[in-house]
């Protein structure tokens, strides 16, 4: 009889482990990207706002910065945009805005109307770079350290609170540590 109970016991143990795992994933909030801890993919793309001078991602080396993936067609990006503009006004962390599969004219109009929170706006019209970054859907934001390593990834729109907690504080801690 007992040997027929073994599968049940093994499953009970597994259920406990999975239960703990689910609670942990709640703490994490979102699924981490497998890219975390790895070097951010390098790219060179035209800049939306500076004609003739392509943006090279190596330009950001040596600085903590955020890479924000956005598009004018993205509903959540509009709400997020105010947070980003406020973040730029407050200073602290430069933001690169990867314009993903977008219409360039509309993107320029969007930035002219709503304000430009970005230090540079590389244009990823084909979405190739977004694939390298494992972007699932806009908006997504990556925190990248001075060595060019991805430290954190936010899936979905940023809020002021998330920006403060997951981006500014991490960058500040990193700066103190180094």
């Amino acid at each position: 009889m007992t040997r027929y109970l073994l599968p049940l016991a093994a499953f009970a143990l597994l259920a406990v482990v999975l239960g703990v795992g689910v609670r942990h994933s709640k703490d994490k909030g979102v699924v981490a990207s497998p890219l975390i801890g790895r070097p951010a993919p390098q790219f060179t793309l035209p800049d939306l706002l500076v004609a003739g001078a392509p943006f090279d991602s190596r330009r950001m080396h040596g600085r903590w910065h955020a890479l924000n993936v956005w598009g004018t067609w993205c509903v959540e990006c509009r709400a997020e945009h105010e947070v980003l503009v406020a973040a730029r006004q407050a200073g602290g962390l430069p933001i690169v805005g990867l314009n993903w599969r977008d219409d360039e004219a509309e993107a320029r109009r969007w930035l002219a109307q709503l304000g430009n929170p970005y230090e540079a706006v590389p244009v990823d019209a084909e979405g190739r770079i977004a694939i390298d970054y494992g972007v699932y859907g806009a908006p997504e934001t990556f925190l990248i350290d001075p060595a060019g390593v991805i430290v954190h990834k936010q899936i979905g729109p940023l809020t002021a609170e998330i920006w403060e907690r997951d981006f500014l504080r991490r960058a500040a801690r990193g700066k103190d540590g180094s």
Partner: peptide, 25 residues
Amino acid sequence: SGVLVSVHSFAADPARGVFILAFLV
């Protein structure tokens, strides 16, 4: 449920994880 990290990572929701776990149990 997002308990594992993978190249297939989805924007997962822990509430869903809890539900599936209950269903599994």
